[in-house]
Design a protein around this nucleic acid. Sequence first.
DNA 1: AAATGCGCCAACCGCAATGGA
DNA 2: GTCCATTGCGGTTGGCGCATT
Length: 335
Amino acid sequence: MGRHSCCFKQKLRKGLWSPEEDEKLLNYITRHGHGCWSSVPKLAGLQRCGKSCRLRWINYLRPDLKRGAFSQDEESLIIELHAALGNRWSQIATRLPGRTDNEIKNFWNSCLKKKLRRKGIDPTTHKPLIISELHQSLNVIDQKLTSSEVIKSTGLINNNSHDQSMMVVSSQSSGPWWFPATTNQNAGFCFSSSTTTPTVSDQIVSLISSMSTSSSSPTPMTSNFNPAAPNNWELNYCNTVPSQSNSIYNAFFGNNYTEASQIIMNNNNPVVDHHQNMKSWASSEIPQYTETGLEAEVKPDIAKYYWRSASLLSSPNQEVATLLHDADVAFDQSF
DNA sequence: AAATGCGCCAACCGCAATGGA
DNA sequence: GTCCATTGCGGTTGGCGCATT
């Protein structure tokens, strides 16, 4: 705890208040009121700055303060108010008579945050942790794709027209396309044929939405996937839902797909049929997918998003959470 | 018994807002 | 409009006490 500059200049006391100091301050304010805080210490005979006196009065000496532990009702109210107001402690305190903003803030930071996390609730957003983490992950992708690490092209893209190291995706789709700015990646993105730039989040949310309501089997996508190229991968986001779905499945392939789909099957999740169809298709059409896996930079996150969305439709699954954690690690390491 | 780690919380810091000269 | 003192707020921290090693 440092010393206020004003305290330093005047060699004023700092730190914990002694009972004698408390008594002086209490006596003075009881008789005269606090008035101008900067003059209180002098008039009360204290070697403190006005700011320190004010804080001591508000947080400790005020006669209307409620002492002791927070009740269950107070706890619930704080959570409710924090959800509505955020870290506006002074505003929250006005709704809890006898409690100070500092007291509520400390209670929140030392106790309530942990309680909420244990219940699976994000204490910042007050939403289920699983959703908050998803949004964070998607923000990472969004940021990456809008940073200097990617290059946006316009119009029609032809194979190898940009960089020889790139295995460019379907040449029939028009832009905008996105490519890594550096040549050590072998990838291309096409989000839509519109000229605007949708966020990845929007795209994936849209895909997930269409997938969860679709009962038809996925249609094989056109691919120029090249297993001979190291770390070759592609994510071809086109306009038609089936091929978009396939892209998600492709992204999902690799170390996590098989295991995750097995878990889905064991839990009688209806999504399993979709997975199984896709798996069968991929094995027959592009056998190397199941062997090599696609080490896509964004694969773990897309897989994570897709899988979490699916798991929210049924019950949360601990095993899958572990898988997703692994995917998280892989994703982080790719940066 | 001593050392270490950890959680809690009183109090501090820096900044923004406010108001008066 | 500008300056300056004061007040209010939220984030941060240092010290205390308890638990664990």
